[in-house]
C-alpha cells in the first residue's frame, strides 16, 4: 500500500492527498511534525529522504520527495488517459510547465504562508511581489481559457495534475496575506476545483 509521510498543514502534502482522493486510492498516512518539532530535519527522516522535505511518498521500493514527481507517478500509474495523456507530447509539456509553475508558487505564496504561520525567516515583501506577478499571469491564462471554453490550466476538457499542484498554494494564499480579490478568473477556477468529484479539504480550505 502507498505510504505518505506528511504534515496536515503542508500545502504540498495537501496536493498529494487531494490527488489520491480524486483517484480514489487508499493510502497509509504517516504524520511528521513539521512545526514546531521539525521532525522532517531529524536523522531518522533524513535516512528516508535526504531532501528533508515533506511530503514523501513510498510505494514499495519507490521513494518520491517532490510534488511534481509524486503527482506524475500517480497519474501515470493510476490515472489512466484522463490524468496521463501518454501519447500527447504537447499536453505533457504543458503539464510539466504547470508543475514547474506550482514550484514557483510554493517558493513564493507557499513560503510566505509558512513564514507567517511558523515564524520562519523570509523576505516576505519580495515573495509576495513575485507571487502577485505569477497570479496575474495565471489569471490572464484562465480568463482566456474561459473565453475559449477551457476550464483548466492546460487546454482541454479535463483538469490535469498541474491544476492539482497549483491549487493548494493559491487557495491558501490569503493565509500569507496575498489577497485574491484581484484575480477573478482564478477565483472561479478555485470553485471548479472544489467541485471535482472526490474533492477533499484541509485546514483553511472550504469545499464547494
Amino acid at each position: 500500500m502507498i505510504a505518505l509521510h506528511d504534515y496536515d498543514l503542508s500545502a504540498e502534502g495537501y496536493a498529494v492527498r487531494l490527488f489520491l482522493a480524486l483517484l480514489g486510492l487508499d493510502y497509509r498516512l504517516l504524520p511528521v511534525e513539521f512545526y514546531p518539532a521539525r521532525e522532517h530535519e531529524g536523522e531518522e527522516f533524513r535516512a528516508l529522504s535526504p531532501m528533508a522535505s515533506l511530503p514523501v511518498l513510498v510505494d514499495g521500493d519507490l521513494v518520491l520527495t517532490e510534488v511534481a514527481g509524486i503527482l506524475s507517478y500517480l497519474a501515470a500509474r493510476h490515472g489512466g488517459a484522463d490524468w496521463y495523456p501518454a501519447g500527447d507530447a504537447a499536453q505533457l509539456g504543458r503539464i510539466g510547465d504547470g508543475l514547474a509553475l506550482s514550484a514557483r508558487l510554493a517558493a513564493t505564496a507557499g513560503a510566505v504562508r509558512l513564514a507567517d504561520g511558523m515564524m520562519l525567516p523570509l523576505d516576505g515583501a519580495a515573495a509576495r511581489a513575485e507571487a502577485k506577478r505569477l497570479l496575474r499571469v495565471i489569471d490572464e491564462r484562465l480568463w482566456f481559457g474561459e473565453a475559449a471554453g477551457d476550464d483548466w490550466l492546460c487546454p482541454g476538457p479535463r483538469p490535469s495534475i498541474a491544476d492539482i499542484a497549483c491549487f493548494p498554494h493559491i487557495v491558501l494564499a490569503e493565509e500569507g496575506d496575498i489577497p485574491l480579490i484581484d484575480y477573478p478568473a482564478i477565483r472561479r477556477w478555485l470553485d471548479r476545483v472544489r467541485r471535482l468529484p472526490g474533492f477533499v479539504v484541509m485546514p483553511g480550505v472550504f469545499g464547494a
Binding site: 480579490i181 472561479r188 470553485d191
Partner: peptide, 12 residues
C-alpha cells in the same frame, strides 16, 4: 461574465 453560476464575486 464574472458572475458565473453559483459563484460569489468579490469587489472593492
Amino acid at each position: 461574465r464574472d458572475l458565473a453560476g453559483r459563484h460569489v464575486f468579490q469587489a472593492c
